[in-house]
């Protein structure tokens, strides 16, 4: 084949690649655009803070205040459980590892935990937190369920962040008589902290948007007030989208409402992602 022909082949190949890629990217972009356009129409201050109500035809009125509060509460509480355990587990995998298969098995189990379908987590949460521990259908049960989802994400980022810390800092602290945990927590962890932070934000973005794990562990479609205690059922943004789209009588009105919620949810998650990008560029500059 002549040089010209080969270059032509490359051109055609790359051109068709580009067309397909731009098509996919366009599809993804249009999802953002659709949510923005459809959601902006419903969005106002009242929508964000007031309580939801339904009229006799099943049309949704009011706002999503309790759902925003509920999502914040389960996510926050879930992190309270997941962050300490996840970080310590990541530290264990990175600092306490020794040769031998057992650590590879442990690591693989973390990856597997990350791959467990979220609806299975929901079943587990129902069986253990709601029924066995008698926490009932509540913010607490849902938060605990979500914390199990967040756990592997936090463990994996912590392990990688700790491993990236140069070894000579560990040697320096050991040479001063530091014990393993002192070296890990006082020297290595502070260096890895900002990278670990990105993992924590990633985990919160993930659990804030989950529906299946809270579906039968505590979320409810309608609550006449803001949540006040962790043993109550709660409204949540993702669950509300699902509920409005599948149980409503007046589809077109609830669709608009659902887009408003989707816009709020996506904005929240996008903000978290932007925080991650900023954190990352900062750590890059420092090292």
């Amino acid at each position: 084949m002549s040089f010209k022909k080969r270059m032509l082949k490359q051109r055609i190949a790359f051109l068709s690649l580009s067309i397909v890629s731009i098509g996919i990217l366009f599809a993804i972009g249009s999802i953002f655009a659709l949510i923005l356009v459809n959601g902006l129409g419903v969005l106002n201050w009242n929508f964000l803070i007031s309580i939801t109500s339904f009229d006799f035809k099943g049309v949704t009125h009011g706002g999503i205040g309790p759902a925003i509060a509920g999502t914040f509460m389960v996510t926050g509480l879930g992190l309270v459980f997941a962050v300490p355990v996840g970080i310590l587990a990541g530290i264990y995998l990175s600092e306490y590892r020794s040769k031998g298969k057992i650590f590879n098995v442990l690591r693989m189990m973390v990856a597997n935990l990350a791959g467990v379908p979220s609806v299975v987590h929901g079943l587990f949460g129902l069986a253990v937190f709601a029924v066995l521990f008698k926490f009932g259908l509540s913010i607490l049960s849902s938060a605990l369920t979500l914390s199990i989802l967040a756990l592997p994400i936090i463990i994996m980022t912590t392990e990688n962040a700790m491993r990236d810390v140069p070894n000579d800092l560990r040697e320096a602290s050991y040479s001063l008589g530091a014990k393993k945990w002192q070296s890990a927590l006082l020297v290595v962890f502070p260096v890895a902290a900002s990278k670990i932070m990105t993992g924590v934000i990633l985990a919160s973005a993930r659990i804030a948007g989950e529906t299946a794990p809270i579906l039968f562990t505590g979320a409810t479609l309608y609550l006449a007030h803001y949540p006040t205690a962790i043993n109550q059922q709660f409204m949540a943004l993702p669950y509300m989208i699902y509920g409005l789209m599948t149980t409503s009588i007046n589809i077109s009105a609830s669709t608009n409402f659902a887009y408003g919620i989707a816009l709020v949810l996506i904005t929240l998650i996008a903000l978290m992602n932007i925080a991650i990008v900023i954190f990352r560029s900062k750590t890059r500059k420092n090292s």
């Binding site: 993804i28 999802i31 953002f32 949510i35 990633l202 973005a205 993930r206 804030a208 948007g209 989950e210 529906t211 993702p238 669950y239 989208i241 699902y242 789209m245 669709t255 659902a258 887009y259 989707a262 949810l265 996506i266 998650i269 996008a270 978290m272 992602n273």
Partner: peptide, 12 residues
């Protein structure tokens, strides 16, 4: 960012 969009939104 798209990878962290909740699946319920794609459902919508």
């Amino acid at each position: 960012i798209f990878s962290s969009v909740p699946s319920v939104i794609l459902g919508l």
